[in-house]
Amino acid sequence: MTTFLLVAACGGLGAVTRFVLNTSIQRLWNNAFPLSTFVINVIATFCAGIAAAAYAYQTVDQHTYLLFVTGFLGGFSTFSTAINEMVSLTRKERFGMAALYCALTIVVPLLCVAAGWFCIAVTQS
């Protein structure tokens, strides 16, 4: 039960962090491209790569990994919002922007996970 509550608390912290970052970026960015969600998911996937490598190299234990990845990053990242923004761009007939956002939302996070993993792998060599 304690782990359940800790994951929930970390998820709440992640959601609040996403809200603050999302609001801050949206104040500064006035463009059709949904930059705030993109930046949040890029940060989350980079951190997930770091966490996965740290767990694989036994730098962090399973409990810490669970709290950070499932809890905090689960509350912080938001793939469903990215999909909703793609649909919204398509409904507004911004097909090029929707396609670009879709491609970037898939490719860049994969690269970020690899980069995060690489950061830990280099230090373990």
Score class of each variant (00 low, 15 high):
residue 58 Q to T: 14
residue 88 S to F: 13
residue 7 V to E: 01
residue 33 F to P: 03
residue 99 A to M: 14
residue 61 D to L: 10
residue 90 T to G: 09
residue 12 G to K: 13
residue 39 V to T: 05
residue 38 F to D: 01
residue 68 F to W: 12
residue 117 W to K: 03
residue 111 L to M: 09
residue 74 G to C: 11
residue 124 Q to A: 11
residue 8 A to P: 09
residue 42 V to R: 08
residue 113 V to R: 04
residue 28 L to A: 05
residue 50 I to H: 05
residue 114 A to M: 03
residue 91 R to D: 11
residue 78 T to H: 11
residue 25 I to N: 07
residue 100 L to Q: 04
residue 25 I to L: 12
residue 60 V to I: 15
residue 63 H to S: 03
residue 89 L to P: 05
residue 12 G to C: 13
residue 30 N to A: 07
residue 6 L to K: 09
residue 6 L to A: 09
residue 14 G to F: 14
residue 33 F to A: 02
residue 37 T to Q: 10
residue 7 V to P: 02
residue 70 T to L: 13
residue 95 F to Q: 15
residue 31 N to H: 15
residue 114 A to I: 10
residue 122 V to L: 13
residue 80 S to M: 14
residue 38 F to N: 02
residue 107 V to K: 03
residue 82 A to T: 06
residue 66 L to G: 04
residue 78 T to V: 08
residue 34 P to K: 13
residue 42 V to F: 14
residue 102 C to A: 11
residue 78 T to F: 08
residue 77 S to C: 10
residue 70 T to Q: 08
residue 71 G to W: 07
residue 44 A to H: 10
residue 38 F to C: 02
residue 61 D to N: 14
residue 18 R to S: 00
residue 112 C to G: 01
residue 10 C to I: 12
residue 19 F to S: 08
residue 112 C to M: 06
residue 57 Y to T: 05
residue 59 T to I: 14
residue 75 G to W: 13
residue 108 V to P: 00
residue 105 T to I: 07
residue 13 L to V: 11
residue 35 L to K: 06
residue 81 T to E: 05
residue 21 L to S: 05
residue 1 M to D: 03
residue 100 L to Y: 02
residue 94 R to P: 13
residue 42 V to G: 01
residue 24 S to A: 15
residue 48 A to H: 07
residue 102 C to D: 04
residue 67 L to N: 03
residue 30 N to I: 12
residue 92 K to Q: 14
residue 113 V to N: 00
residue 14 G to R: 15
residue 72 F to M: 10
residue 63 H to F: 01
residue 17 T to P: 04
residue 116 G to I: 02
residue 20 V to W: 15
residue 36 S to A: 11
residue 104 L to S: 03
residue 15 A to E: 06
residue 20 V to P: 05
residue 100 L to A: 07
